[in-house]
Amino acid sequence: MPPIGLFDSGIGGITVLREVRRLLPGEDLLYLADQAHCPYGPRPIDELRAIAATCAAWLIERGAKLIVVACNTASAAALGDLRQRFPETPFVGMVPPVKPAAAHTRSGVVGVLATPTTLEGNLLRDVIEHWANGVRVVPQACHGLVECIEEGALDSPTTVVLLQRYVAPLLDAGADTIVLGCTHYPLVLPQIRALVGDDVHLLDAAPAVAQRVVQVVQERGLAEVPAGMPGSVTYATTGDPQRLARLIERLDLPRGSVIPVTSL
């Protein structure tokens, strides 16, 4: 059965896979963790587009019927380019959930935690222009946070210091709603919650993206799932498969087979 493909620079996009798995438990899922190039955030746009195209081509060669760009940075840099390069393949990308954040805020201030490329990209700018009228959006680039999460160091002193550094300006600005603008960041949601308290609303785009995947599958007639049959989950990594498997288990992410990728 043709799988739904997903890719990210590392484990972050598995937070999206988790939601897709919840809504479409019968679909086969093929996830590419491009850990050899992690993090994507500091890389130039042209390099990100080339990397994203290579990841998408790898998934398409393995039969992916739909591809989720499960990375805000890659979506911001390359989603439009991917749709032009591979017009026969539907793509679903990540957009920081500024629209629901703007609708939810009571203070009129929304914070966005993201990588520099996501904050500078057209996708976020367009969403702010269309949906954040009358709302102040405070961007916060989170240098180094993805690397800590990739190491599984969710509670390390370094991670806590970084989170304190990045969350404080948003709270000081009066934000009562904070957007998690990177698929890695939900993995430190408890740590962020401990810093911001219960009165600040935290928004993760993964559930909405998974809903969009369901919609595309239905609209395009891509569902090929026998009733009651569970789908498989396969992880592929350009890094160390054993390390990825340990991280998946440690972070209680959906289990699946893990294979190496040597030809990307």
Rank of each mutant, 00 (worst) to 15 (best):
P42K: 05
T15Y: 10
P44C: 12
I45Q: 11
G26S: 06
P42W: 00
D34A: 09
L48K: 07
D34C: 08
R43G: 00
R49I: 11
R22W: 08
C55A: 14
T54W: 01
A36L: 12
D46T: 12
L48M: 11
D28G: 09
C55W: 00
V20H: 03
P39A: 09
E47S: 13
R21W: 09
E19I: 04
I51G: 02
W58E: 13
P44T: 10
I51M: 04
T54R: 15
W58L: 10
A50M: 06
I51W: 00
L23K: 14
V16G: 00
P42I: 05
A53H: 10
Q35T: 11
D46C: 06
G41Y: 09
L17P: 06
L23A: 12
P25D: 15
V20M: 08
C38K: 02
D34M: 03
C38F: 14
E27F: 10
I14D: 03
L23P: 12
L29H: 05
A36D: 01
I45T: 14
P25L: 13
G26D: 06
L48N: 01
P44M: 14
L17M: 15
I45W: 05
D46S: 14
R49V: 12
D28E: 15
R21Q: 14
L32I: 10
A36Y: 04
P39Y: 07
L32C: 06
V16S: 03
P39F: 05
P42L: 01
R22S: 13
H37V: 01
L29S: 07
R49P: 07
P44N: 12
L48H: 01
V20K: 09
P25E: 15
D46I: 04
G13K: 05
L32D: 06
L24T: 02
V16P: 06
I45H: 09
G41T: 08
G13V: 05
G13T: 08
G41H: 02
H37M: 08
C55D: 15
I14P: 06
D28P: 12
D46F: 03
E47N: 09
C55E: 12
I51E: 00
Y31A: 02
E19R: 12
V20L: 12
W58P: 06
T54N: 11
V20E: 09
D46Y: 00
L23H: 11
R43Q: 15
L29P: 03
E47W: 09
I14L: 05
R49M: 12
R22E: 15
A52M: 05
I51K: 00
L32V: 10
A53Y: 02
P44H: 11
I45A: 11
A36W: 01
A53Q: 13
A50D: 15
L23V: 07
A33G: 13
G13C: 05
R49A: 09
G26F: 02
P39G: 07
L29M: 13
A36V: 05
W58V: 05
A50S: 14
A36F: 02
A33R: 04
A57P: 07
A33W: 11
L32A: 08
Q35F: 03
C38W: 07
V20I: 15
V16F: 07
E27V: 11
L30D: 03
G13W: 02
I45E: 13
L24F: 01
W58Q: 01
L32E: 00
R49F: 10
